[in-house]
């Protein structure tokens, strides 16, 4: 949210399979998202992509991949096209800490620096790849230090500190528009629940509740809420609740796609 608030509508984002917040923050339609989760024909991909492949081309949400790291290179290609066209738009590429272990991450950083692409790399570091902590996966756990070796500025931020995040993102985006070349932000965060699904998973023993507690106590949404006037906050919450209820009703009332959709959209004729 902090990053997307610094973007314009013509800017483009690419995300990961954990991309619901990104989709909404960049202007994606809540109804179309919830309908997609329900597998309905009114979903943003007509029920064909599901939770992990949200897209809204009109809002510059250009896709999400379930194969870790994959969209990083796609984002760089889009940025190359923007630069070729002398566009002032930029691309933000979102991925997790696990993606920084993939070869495509290193390859893309090198290419982005080589071509001075207008791309903001945003690593949402939640410290876990499924059930394995970053310290068990990375010989040098300081991702920013590794990134600087490729020749681009890198900065670590607290993902729960939204005002600072927005400020740094605005600065980075302005530099990108000025043609100063790619930038990297590592935004620290934490996954509250299990890898996939709505449940807690502390019983598995790979992490402790105590590790999660400070993150939950310090949650960005709560902190922003505390900055608001109580009346204003109540009104926002009422509106959001109504919007969510509307999206759920819309999804429930929508039809499933017809059988004829199975073989549609393999190729563009």
């Amino acid at each position: 949210m902090g990053i997307c608030a610094a973007l314009r509508s013509e800017d483009v984002v690419f995300g990961t399979y954990r991309g619901h917040a990104l989709y909404l923050a960049k202007g994606g339609d809540l109804r179309a998202m919830v309908a997609e989760l329900f597998g309905k024909e009114t979903g943003c991909t007509k029920g064909k992509g599901g939770s992990m492949h949200l897209i809204d081309t009109a809002q510059g949400v250009m896709g999400m991949s379930a194969v870790v790291g994959t969209t990083i290179a796609n984002a760089a290609g889009y940025a190359y096209a923007l630069k070729l066209r002398r566009s002032s738009a930029i691309v933000a590429s979102f991925f997790g800490d696990g993606a920084t272990e993939e070869g495509v991450f290193a390859e893309t950083l090198n290419f982005a620096v080589l071509k001075r692409l207008p791309i903001l790399f945003v690593c949402e570091n939640n410290q876990y790849a499924i059930h394995t902590h970053q310290s068990q996966r990375q010989g040098l756990p300081d991702i920013c230090q590794r990134v600087r070796g490729f020749g681009l500025p890198a900065e670590r931020l607290d993902g729960n500190d939204l005002p600072t995040l927005l400020h740094v993102a605005e600065e980075a985006v302005a530099a990108l528009r000025a043609g100063e070349g790619p930038r990297f932000l590592e935004v620290m965060t934490y996954r509250w629940r299990e890898h996939v699904g709505p449940n807690l998973d502390f019983h598995l023993g790979y992490r402790d509740q105590a590790e999660a507690d400070p993150w939950i106590a310090n949650d960005a949404v709560c902190r922003v809420g505390q900055l608001l006037d109580p009346d204003e906050r109540e009104q926002i919450e009422r509106e959001v609740e109504a919007e969510v209820a509307d999206a759920l009703a819309f999804a429930q009332e929508s039809a499933f796609p017809p059988a004829s959709e199975l073989l549609c959209d393999v190729f563009k004729e």
Binding site: F14, M62, G63, T70, T71, I72, A73, N74, A75, A76, G77, Y78, A79, Y80, A81, L82, G103, V104, E107, T108, N110, F111
Partner: peptide, 13 residues
């Protein structure tokens, strides 16, 4: 790997 991904991103654009 990345350059194929770049090609895809270009085509998307």
């Amino acid at each position: 790997d990345a350059m194929t991904g770049v090609a895809i991103g270009m085509a998307l654009a």
